[in-house]
Design a protein around this nucleic acid. Sequence first.
DNA 1: CGTCATTACGGAATGCGTAATGATA
DNA 2: TATCATTACGCATTCCGTAATGACG
Lengths: 298, 298
Amino acid sequence: MYTLEQLRGFVAVAEEGNFGRAAERLRMTQPPLSRQIQKLEREIGVELFERTHRGVDLTAGGRVFLDEARRLLGLAEAAPLRARSVSRGAAGAVRIGFTAMTAISVLGGWIRAAGQHLPDVDLVLSEAVSREQVAALLAGDLDIGVARGVPRSDLLGVRLVHAESLVLAVRSDHPLATSGREPEIAEIAEHDLITYSPVEARYLHELVVAVFQHQASRPTTSSRSTRSPACCRWSTPVWEPRSCPSPRPSSSVRAWCTSPVADITPRTVQAHAVWRLDNANPAVSALLRLVLPSRPPA
Amino acid sequence: MYTLEQLRGFVAVAEEGNFGRAAERLRMTQPPLSRQIQKLEREIGVELFERTHRGVDLTAGGRVFLDEARRLLGLAEAAPLRARSVSRGAAGAVRIGFTAMTAISVLGGWIRAAGQHLPDVDLVLSEAVSREQVAALLAGDLDIGVARGVPRSDLLGVRLVHAESLVLAVRSDHPLATSGREPEIAEIAEHDLITYSPVEARYLHELVVAVFQHQASRPTTSSRSTRSPACCRWSTPVWEPRSCPSPRPSSSVRAWCTSPVADITPRTVQAHAVWRLDNANPAVSALLRLVLPSRPPA
DNA sequence: CGTCATTACGGAATGCGTAATGATA
DNA sequence: TATCATTACGCATTCCGTAATGACG
């Protein structure tokens, strides 16, 4: 097989139309260049030049081989650049899993940051609940998850990326809203509530349960919405993360208000970034370095 | 710059996942292969493999470089084949000039033959009168002309590719048609005729003039059509090459007949292939070898 | 201890540069 | 005879293969 050096020589001679100038351009003397071309011609079985006495002319075969040689050299030059930028993490793809809720509170910022600082890194997003995300991470089908309630594992790096408090959303005419004070848990416990599905929104469901854990009276749960408390037409209060309001009946949006709760444990709604510590994709490290403040990931 | 050999080594190792088997496949021993890869990695500045103790895994950079390497090797292998087939004349393009008349009598066969035996040779056809064709040949803008009345030149190869006789086309009720014999030139000279334009169809015009050169009486030329005797509504005879009938008035096609002339010099309507003897395009030689019977062109 | 990758070393081949030769207008 | 391209030859480098070393399970 011929070498790329020979192609460079060939292109130079073809462009200069003359071995001498081509050799000069390549910083070498004519004889080795002449031998290179001869060897190349022998190798590919095509006479590339017509040797005249004032220089050389391309043959028909040489003309098409010149096109090929130029393309080949272009690719040969570009290939290492691409590989280098991938190995730096500046290009490539990162597969990210998210949940309905983390999409809003976390992913928006990541996408913005990546678009600005890692423009050649593709983010491949897929929605999945936390358990599925962890399984996909371990199976190698996912690079980074944004999830809740991640099990400890030596294989996984975990970092808190979002934390906020539960707030209460109530109709403005509800007693909890008209009192003029931030309601306390004990007060809230006296009323009906809508809470989360223990199956499909287990994390939030358990958070709400925990809120009332030490109360004498428990709220009556009048409805359990599926993923987040669904569009509610009743005048029943709803727990929700501050950044992720549940949909209001559009006819009465302005009649609702959200209210902090006086004695609730703050920042209990959390989201964690999770990734495999042995992930070899440099784009993953680059993205984690970009979106996780301070401490670098393993 | 790296070597295509190195790429072959890299692809082999990547595919085998193991230096030993890759070396075996390449018919060499492990150490030089190992050094090749190291050198390649140094050259392109990317670590391509993670060395484990049961073999190797591609890094992220290695994976994209593998794609590039495969494409590069594919092109590198295909390039000489293309160049070879062009240099054999089995591929490429031939620029052919033709006249309105040679198109019908000659070009059809050439196109059929080339399509069958030189399927990768493109025929680029352009219509031009003989004089223009010769000029284009000498200027290097044309590879082969099919023309008449070509001047002698040491630069040009010329071969007769078509020869036929002039025949007379007459209305069936014309005296020349009703006599029951093939008309003779002397008889024809007694009648009106339509002949060719001395400007735009000079070659045929002069042929017709030559026919009557030694006759006592000359025919009265009632009309001179432009390229070939145009659609004629009169009961006037028309000279034409046998293979190239002039258009008849569609209303009376069946009322016309063509008739050989008893004492005319045969095969005076000729077409020649013309080409530059120093044309370096192998496809031209290949086509000429194909369409010119027996004697090979210079 | 067996498997795989890497370093060490000697010999062959490749490839450069200088100098000489060839070929052509 | 001047200009290119090509062959001749000597030296440095490269690159292979054999043998030895190293690392990990």
